[in-house]
């Protein structure tokens, strides 16, 4: 473990306002080119839908979820804008991490908790996020960020519900983080 001063450490990340402008420009390009915003959870839904279809090709006949999924994925479950975009996110994140020397297999957690505890909460948190994103028709990127950019009322409501709830519960989960 190398010890870096706080300045050295923080210099390794982009200035957050510059990062925000760049992210905003990516989102703007997405709207200009494809007429839609960014997303993430929708790609998970595509993989889930494709896997259910692969196991049971008649799923659409006896499952309302699959019937609606097929109707909204006419071009094929995986041949979908969000699937290609999320593949890009993997490549982009990897490249940035590689350039900055941050590629490393590790469990990141507060020194006050064990790795196992961190991973257990990551699993539960992920499950809740995946479920909530289905209900709200999108996650932080698809519903909140992209929705806000096009002034969608639902985008603002979902954003406030996500951040408001996380703030309200922060006290109870403080040991995980501080």
């Amino acid at each position: 473990m190398t010890t870096l001063s706080k300045e050295e450490r923080s210099r390794r990340y982009l200035n957050p306002y510059l990062g925000g402008i760049l992210l905003g420009l990516v989102l703007l390009m997405s709207n200009f080119i494809s007429g839609r915003g960014l997303g993430a959870s929708g790609a998970v839904k595509s993989v889930v839908g494709a896997s259910i279809e692969a196991v049971n090709s008649n799923a659409a006949e006896n499952s309302l979820f699959m019937a609606e999924f097929k109707a909204s994925h006419q071009g094929g479950a995986l041949n979908n804008w969000l699937v290609y975009e999320v593949l890009g996110v993997i490549v982009g994140g990897f490249l940035s991490g590689a350039f900055a020397g941050r590629l490393k297999l590790k469990v990141e957690h507060s020194p006050k908790i064990t790795s196992v505890r961190r991973l257990a909460f990551a699993l539960v948190g992920g499950a809740l996020f995946g479920f909530g994103a289905q209900l709200a028709r999108g996650c932080t990127s698809g519903a909140a960020l992209s929705g806000m950019a096009v002034l969608s009322l639902g985008g603002f409501i979902t954003m406030m519900a996500i951040f408001g709830t996380a703030f309200a519960l922060a006290y109870f989960f403080r040991k995980l983080w501080i």
């Binding site: 960014l38 997303g39 993430a40 959870s41 998970v44 996110v89 909460f121 990551a122 699993l123 539960v124 948190g125 992920g126 499950a127 809740l128 996020f129 995946g130 479920f131 909530g132 994103a133 209900l135 709200a136 996650c139 932080t140 990127s141 979902t158 519900a161 996500i162 951040f163 408001g164 709830t165 996380a166 309200a168 519960l169 922060a170 989960f173 995980l176 983080w177």
Partner: peptide, 14 residues
Amino acid sequence: VMGAGFIMGGFCPG
């Protein structure tokens, strides 16, 4: 539900 997932899991999907 997503907010609860955020504070427990520390990430969002993206």
